[in-house]
Design a protein around this nucleic acid. Structure first.
Lengths: 126, 126
DNA sequence: CCACTGGTACGACTTCTCTCGTACTACTTG
DNA sequence: CAAGTAGTACGAGAGAAGTCGTACCAGTGG
């Protein structure tokens, strides 16, 4: 059956008050995004799962690393989230002691239209 | 400026007489294609360049590995073309002594719609 | 049959990536 | 200030991947 999630047109996040948020951690600018790097970051099942979960369950809200419920040591999670940020897939902000993540939907749709729809349709191996 | 190649809708190849062609080398079936594997294969600049060139310059014709004019040893090319075939991006057929490649446009558009458009728009680092 | 062409297979080497333990830092709360 | 929470940095080990030389093989054409 393979119920395909129809996630073609992402509602762009309703322009939150960016000015009031903590500064994002260092990340490539929209123009610096490289398709090879983005694809490499997404080629790991854990990471594409993270991006997919963020897309489907929280386009408008940021989430901490632990929100994902991943059964990995903290140092492994740091590695994967940093990989995603350095490739330009997610934006990370420091909220007090914790760090929150969101997908860079606007930037990615602008540079690589349709890519996030593929991520949203992805399913892990059974 | 970045003149974006508008390559959204690929003309599906006009159904060549598949029966008369040599058998394809072993490859994953359409249902076996995995997005992670496809993205991993495309995350190498040399390989995404190969797929892009095949897409833009020869959708309807197969090409040998040497046609690409890549300045690498033969054994390296064998490695990259096999990687692309095993990920399901290209189909390879043996024509006498040489081996010819084409992109699996139909299968990829069916499973991962829009992905090939991103590949066609890709440009190498200057 | 011999040389040429267009590849493959194998193996070595190097580099990258994933994984994770340990130690540490930053902030919050009592 | 002490304890708890959420994360980082460092570094080591294992495995995967890229690079490429060498030897080899299958057709093609003289």
């Amino acid at each position: 059956m393979s119920a395909q999630v129809s996630a073609r047109d992402f509602p762009l996040p309703p322009a939150p008050p960016e000015a009031e948020l903590p500064e994002p951690l260092p990340e490539p600018s929209r123009d610096e995004l490289r398709l090879e790097a983005v694809l490499a970051a997404l080629s790991d099942p854990l990471r594409i799962g993270i991006v997919r979960k963020l897309l489907l369950e929280s386009v408008e809200h940021d989430h901490t690393c632990t929100w994902f419920g991943l059964d990995r040591p903290k140092s492994s999670l740091t590695h994967h989230f940093r990989t995603l940020r350095e490739a330009g897939l997610i934006r990370q902000r420091q909220y007090g002691p914790s760090r929150r993540n969101r997908v860079r939907v606007e930037d990615l749709e602008d540079r690589f239209p349709g890519l996030l729809a593929l991520v949203a349709d992805w399913t892990p191996v059974e």
